[in-house]
Write a protein that binds this DNA or RNA. Structure first.
Length: 471
RNA sequence: GGCCCCAUCGUCUAGUGGCCUAGGACGGCAGAUUCUCAUUCUGCAGACCGGGAUUCGACUUCCCGUGGGGUCACCA
């Protein structure tokens, strides 16, 4: 049984679009293999914790249609799915590591650590913990004198703050296979003695993720590329526990146009932002699917089901793609265009409650006009401005308005053909272009087809607007 | 800087030694359709980072550069 997961941290205002991408791939891999997709909240950083973030993340994931099988709000066979509720588990495992000599207690103060780091930076060395507190529980000692070892034991008994660090062995080659990149090897000398358990009793990501992925029987760890460099530490932990390694796949990081990691300074990063802007969830997912992967027949528009069907994790390209809002917009327009009138109407009403101020009939008549002219749902209000106003835009050409009033008054059969005929006659007589009428009615040089719009607006309302514009 | 990952049009990508005169999509430009705009359609411009090696033959394999990215926290 394939089991995948995403471990979001409730530290932002929503799920990051990059994490949504990771979620999509995790979801696809799980579904493709008839497995389970899980959400586990990694709320171990109480200083960055944000109230309400978890709810927001969960609701966003749902809004995009990535239904999870197990999670903090719905439970599951491995509950709880929130790390803050699993603290004893991490402590127990940290102690197990200490017994095995794979980890050790550390009482170093922040001051000493800072000093050490400054010194190393000054010497142009990579900042790294110096194993100052390393004492092996089995009685072996390293370079510590026995007095300090006794102090350490006493410190724990006295309730002094401590952390548990990973005891990285010297000069060992650590290897793991990445589904996307193949074999990756690193020398243990380049690894730091990472803190595993913090002084507040919470685990760091490294301990938490390994313990939980194993406990929750995760088979495939799919996460962003930025985790590659810490994977060897995780491998060390799996080995120390004697656990089987899951499959690893590190997805490319989505980039800003300047190629740096996608950041909120340079790009909209919160998933719900895209929804608020009037992008459809399926558009966003479709667009994301095309980052690092392509349809076998080079198709651009396809459903989530198709994606799941065709997707192969090993086909993902390891190159970090730039997020292109322009292409996303084009894609959204395609999706909107492919909707039926009824579907589009429903989407518009959900997005712009204000639309319900218009009659059902008006709304229905507007759909064919709108369909090819909307890039996002947000365009509805701008395009239909005329239907919500009581007065024409400022700077009206009064003379033109008067002429229109006169001609329109004479129309008995109010329909777009008749309306256009009158517009046409004015255009010929005055030697003006269609754009002057758009200017008059909307303040813009162009918009929804005017004759059709006026027909839908109705003769009474049209004449009323013109009259008001003249006085 | 150390370590790790990566490298095809501006962007997303196809390409797994000969099918490549390097294909598609977005965007750009030009044109057709059209009562504005949009849609739709047609066409044009536009890329294999550099150097070696392997091979009869490299976009495709290997090495070295160069460039970009990631990571070096009691954050994830």
């Amino acid at each position: 049984m394939v089991r995948t997961r995403i471990p979001p941290s409730p530290t932002g205002q929503d799920i990051h679009i990059g994490n949504l991408y990771t979620a999509l791939i995790n979801f696809a891999v799980a579904k493709k293999n008839h497995g389970k997709f899980i959400i586990r909240i990694e709320d171990t950083d109480r200083t960055r914790f944000q109230e309400g973030a978890e709810e927001k993340i969960l609701s966003s994931v749902k809004a995009f249609g990535l239904h999870y099988d197990e999670g903090p709000d719905i439970g599951g066979p491995f509950a709880p799915y929130r790390q803050s509720e699993r603290l004893p588990l991490y402590k127990k495992h940290a102690e197990e590591l200490i017994e095995k000599g794979a980890a050790y207690y550390c009482f170093c103060t922040k001051e000493r650590l800072d000093e050490l780091r400054q010194q190393q930076i000054k010497e142009k060395k990579t900042p790294r913990y110096d194993k100052h507190c390393l004492i092996l529980e089995n009685g072996e000692r390293t370079r510590l004198d026995s007095r300090r070892r006794v102090d350490a034991r006493r410190g724990i008994e006295n309730g002094e703050p401590y952390v548990v660090r990973l005891n990285v062995p010297a000069n060992k080659t650590i290897t793991f296979t990445d589904v996307i990149r193949g074999e990756i090897a690193i020398n243990s000398n380049d690894l730091d003695d990472q803190v595993l358990l913090k002084s507040d009793g919470f685990p760091t990501y490294h301990l938490g993720v390994v313990v939980d992925d194993h406990a929750m029987e995760i088979t495939t760890v799919i996460r962003a590329e930025e985790w590659i460099s810490s994977t060897p530490k995780h491998v060390l932990l799996y080995q120390a526990f004697g656990w089987e390694l899951p499959a690893f796949a590190h997805l490319p990081i989505i980039r800003n146009p300047d190629k740096s990691k996608l950041s909120k300074r340079k790009n909209p990063v919160w998933a719900s932002w895209y929804l608020e802007q009037g992008f459809l969830p399926e558009t966003v997912l479709n667009y994301l699917a095309l980052l690092g992967w392509s349809h076998p027949k080079e198709e651009e528009i396809f459903s989530l089901e198709t994606f799941i069907d065709l997707f192969e994790l090993s086909d993902v390209k390891p190159v970090g793609p730039v997020f292109d809002l322009v292409k996303l917009t084009w894609m959204n327009q395609q999706y909107l265009q492919n909707k039926t009138d009824a579907q589009l109407k429903k989407l518009i009403i959900e997005f712009s409650p204000r639309a319900t101020k218009l009659s059902e009939e008006t709304l229905t008549a507007l759909m064919p006009l709108l369909k090819s002219r909307m890039q996002t749902l947000q365009d509805f209000e701008a395009q239909t401005w005329l239907f919500f106003t009581n007065k024409l835009p400022d700077g009206t050409d009064k003379e033109l308005a008067a002429e229109l009033l006169e001609k329109f008054t004479g129309i008995t059969d109010w329909n777009h053909a008749m309306i256009f005929a009158e517009l046409k006659s004015i255009m010929l007589a005055r030697k003006v272009k269609m754009s002057v009428f758009y200017q008059l009615f909307t303040g813009e040089k162009h918009g929804l087809p005017l004759p059709e719009v006026l027909e839908i607006l109705g003769k009474d309302k049209t004449l009323e607007l013109l009259k008001l514009a003249i006085v």
